[in-house]
Simulated assay, not measured.
Amino acid sequence: MNSPDRHFEPATQTADRLVYASTWETAGRVWPSNERQLLTCCRVTDETHDVKTFEFRTGDGLPVRFEPGQFLTISAVVGEQSVERCYTISSPPTRPFLVSITVKRVPGGVMSNWLHDNMVVGKTLDAYGPSGSFTPTDWHAPKYLYLSAGSGVTPLMSMTRSSVDLGQDRDIVFVHSARTPADIVFRDELHRLARQSPNLRRFFVCEGVGDEPDWSGGTGRLSLELLSKWVPDYLEREVFTCGPAGYMSAVRALLREGGHNPERYHQESFDITEGVAPAPVIADAPANAPQTSFTVKLSRTSRSFTMSGSETVLSAAKKAGIKIASSCSQGVCGTCKTKVLEGAVDMHHNGGIRDREVQKGFRLLCCSKPTSDLVLDL
């Protein structure tokens, strides 16, 4: 929700959204988040020793519409198992004919290791359309503070690239944390973007200097003292944060200690075990309705299945052998967002759907339990 004391002109916010609209809403077709499409890899770039960027074009050749900060759900067969994972789009919507994800190799990571070891130019994989609400297009402000760690730099990089591409010269301070200077993703590009956009300032803080004994950036971990030195006006800024759960927990505590307004803080995370407060229950019918069996019909395929009111629509669909795009299964990522054409559900989500989407009849099937028979737009 917009904070009542946020300082911006409504006309400016409207104009800003129109600038983005002219970029992606007028070209190509909408790629729904529950629609699978084939992607073809056209470039692989080594960003660091354990981070690669994979660029793709769509199977139909049309541009991809998305907002900076959104993600794709990637689907691949690893071994004999179908695996789906969410990856933030690191490219900007201003370059819509290619879409890229930037992936860190993680010890034991099924999808990340598969991508690093197998994804080459010409190889294909399936993906579901862009989703997610971690984007500045709904939170226009005079000043921004981007805080990231590790591969959490990717959504903020999409936001920054978009701003520079459009010549907006936004007042952005970008503070990135890494293990060593060699682990800083997009280091050279951020320097270049800062030269192109005078109001973009970037700072790096590394736990150690690694192979760069002459490192002149910050060392240790981000602290309130260091933030105050680099960004003395941080209290006035809209904050967007992405990184490991522990990092974001520390950042929230740091900003809270410094007196930053929590309503101006936004974070991206698919790890809901890290203190994400559940959103209020969104109920289309009384939650205490008698438990019984309900019929769920799929309007596009004419398939149907029966389920009880004690299980989620997603879990029941999987039991019935019906494949529905999903990833986190806990109301965070929004991949299973589907329009309910008829009937009612109780939904208890964790931020993976916007109020305006709910008003249009969309629900997250992973955290929705039926209170009547349903007809879904599937």
Results as ranks from 00 to 15, higher is better:
residue 40 T to E: 12
residue 320 A to C: 09
residue 19 V to N: 11
residue 242 C to V: 06
residue 214 D to G: 13
residue 348 H to Y: 05
residue 39 L to W: 07
residue 61 G to A: 07
residue 298 L to S: 07
residue 338 T to M: 12
residue 315 S to A: 15
residue 350 N to R: 15
residue 133 S to G: 04
residue 110 V to H: 06
residue 70 Q to C: 05
residue 51 V to G: 10
residue 117 D to F: 02
residue 150 G to L: 05
residue 46 D to K: 08
residue 207 E to T: 00
residue 33 S to N: 14
residue 279 A to N: 12
residue 77 V to A: 13
residue 193 L to F: 01
residue 127 A to Q: 04
residue 110 V to T: 14
residue 277 A to Q: 12
residue 351 G to F: 11
residue 57 R to I: 15
residue 167 G to L: 07
residue 354 R to S: 13
residue 141 A to Q: 03
residue 252 R to P: 00
residue 92 P to L: 08
residue 297 K to L: 03
residue 23 T to I: 06
residue 293 S to I: 07
residue 297 K to Y: 04
residue 13 Q to Y: 10
residue 94 T to D: 10
residue 365 L to Y: 05
residue 111 M to C: 06
residue 294 F to Y: 14
residue 25 E to Y: 04
residue 289 A to Y: 09
residue 184 I to G: 05
residue 8 F to A: 11
residue 17 R to M: 10
residue 98 L to Y: 12
residue 329 S to M: 12
residue 209 V to Q: 07
residue 337 K to H: 10
residue 191 H to I: 07
residue 310 S to C: 04
residue 346 D to K: 07
residue 162 S to A: 10
residue 253 A to M: 03
residue 141 A to E: 03
residue 182 A to D: 13
residue 254 L to G: 01
residue 299 S to G: 06
residue 310 S to A: 12
residue 8 F to N: 08
residue 159 M to R: 06
residue 311 E to F: 09
residue 48 T to I: 10
residue 377 D to Q: 09
residue 350 N to Y: 10
residue 121 V to I: 12
residue 265 Y to P: 00
residue 317 A to M: 02
residue 24 W to Y: 11
residue 371 T to G: 15
residue 72 L to S: 08
residue 145 L to K: 02
residue 275 G to T: 08
residue 128 Y to F: 13
residue 149 A to T: 02
residue 195 R to S: 09
residue 376 L to M: 14
residue 201 R to Y: 03
residue 82 S to T: 14
residue 251 V to W: 02
residue 145 L to M: 06
residue 256 R to H: 06
residue 164 V to A: 06
residue 198 P to A: 12
residue 53 T to S: 15
residue 275 G to E: 15
residue 287 A to K: 11
residue 94 T to N: 10
residue 339 K to R: 15
residue 339 K to E: 13
residue 353 I to L: 09
residue 43 R to P: 02
residue 306 T to D: 14
residue 162 S to Y: 12
residue 37 Q to W: 04
residue 213 P to D: 08
residue 167 G to V: 02
residue 317 A to T: 02
residue 78 V to L: 05
residue 300 R to H: 09
residue 146 Y to V: 02
residue 25 E to H: 13
residue 129 G to A: 08
residue 315 S to Q: 11
residue 201 R to S: 10
residue 325 A to F: 04
residue 77 V to G: 05
residue 307 M to E: 03
residue 113 N to S: 15
residue 58 T to P: 03
residue 325 A to D: 05
residue 307 M to A: 07
residue 120 V to A: 15
residue 293 S to D: 14
residue 275 G to D: 13
residue 261 N to F: 03
residue 42 C to D: 15
residue 51 V to P: 01
residue 187 R to F: 02
residue 283 A to W: 04
residue 21 A to H: 11
residue 99 V to G: 08
residue 121 V to A: 14
residue 372 S to P: 01
residue 12 T to E: 14
residue 127 A to E: 06
residue 177 S to D: 02
residue 89 I to N: 01
residue 87 Y to A: 12
residue 71 F to R: 02
residue 322 I to A: 08
residue 156 L to C: 03
residue 112 S to N: 05
residue 204 F to L: 04
residue 348 H to A: 15
residue 269 S to L: 04
residue 98 L to N: 14
residue 363 R to N: 08
residue 185 V to K: 06
residue 103 V to Y: 05
residue 74 I to Y: 06
residue 248 M to G: 02
residue 78 V to F: 06
residue 349 H to Q: 11
residue 167 G to D: 04
residue 234 Y to K: 01
residue 66 F to Y: 13
residue 18 L to K: 14
residue 292 T to M: 10
residue 265 Y to R: 00
residue 46 D to L: 10
residue 267 Q to G: 09
residue 347 M to A: 09
residue 18 L to Q: 13
residue 79 G to L: 01
residue 97 F to K: 11
residue 220 G to F: 00
